[in-house]
Write a protein that binds this DNA or RNA. Structure first.
Lengths: 156, 156
DNA sequence: TATTGTTATACTCTATAACTATA
DNA sequence: TATAGTTATAGAGTATAACAATA
């Protein structure tokens, strides 16, 4: 803006210091990716977490809640409401595990499998659009860096 | 685990489908970076958001709250409590903008500047440690990808 | 009329402690 | 005793509507 009153305070904001940090860059880019994903999933009434849970249940039918929480890197209590939601919508069901009446075996319903397929296709397409300026080698390089960061964390 | 009961449900969880997605990889890596940053800032009683706000105020003394919210990509109402917190700790102050009695000119105190310097140094060091397996060219490649994603968002 | 900062509110994600029912 | 799932709760981040003061 060419508003002269702005000049009495600050015209151009410098975030040079923050942009030096990988974490800050990552947060900003992740916010974009996350917003795009949320927008894409809205149509299926899924969020990033319910989507992740559904995909993992479809790919691993019969897994337990504690295994799923582990895989998703969230606490067990926080998974309960996600599973409640997916179950209420009849996208998955809580089967009993034979020989261990404490645990549930999570399984997708047919509707869950179908919604999952559609959502995966939609997310794939939207991500492709979002990353259309990023060629395969750049994507691979970025993915490698993220893998290294994850690994560094797991190794302590 | 070699627990035979696990075998009746699922032994090894496959997250192959999810790992195909750039967004999922990014979320996992970002969680690591974010946790590391939070740990680093704990010592200064700062969080990622209060840290970002403080750095921006130190680098741009006199900026308005609405400008800061813009720069941080957060909504104006959410900035208020962050500024309240930094002001209460006397790290910044709300000065009046001459000729516009609606707005505040945010300025760091000496204590704020000093804490900011220390925090920036600590974050730099911790980030260096976190990324020690990632060489300069890999970092640059990853940063480029993140810039492109951000740009893609700004351009619509 | 429009803008700055504010209040109130609500939703999501995250984290911990404590409970129940099983093992 | 330990584990699976659950409940309750609290903190943090995010988003919108509506308001007072001021432009």
């Amino acid at each position: 803006m060419s508003n002269p009153q702005r000049k009495q305070t600050v015209t151009e904001i410098s975030d040079a210091t923050l942009r030096q940090f990988f974490g800050y860059r990552m947060k900003r880019a992740f916010n974009v990716v996350q917003a795009d994903l949320a927008q894409t999933l809205k149509r299926y009434e899924l969020r990033m977490l319910t989507y992740s849970a559904l995909v993992l249940i479809v790919d691993n039918p019969g897994l337990r809640q504690s295994q799923l929480a582990d895989a998703m890197d969230i606490e067990r209590p926080n998974l309960v409401v996600l599973i409640d939601e997916l179950e209420r919508r009849e996208l998955i069901l809580r089967d009993r595990v034979p020989n261990d009446r404490r645990a549930y075996a999570l399984k997708p319903t047919l509707a869950g499998q179908q919604l999952c397929s559609q959502a995966v296709a939609a997310v794939t397409a939207h991500e492709e659009a979002l990353l259309q300026d990023v060629d395969a080698s750049e994507r691979a390089a970025a993915t490698d860096v993220m893998k290294k960061i994850e690994r560094r964390y797991r190794d302590g």
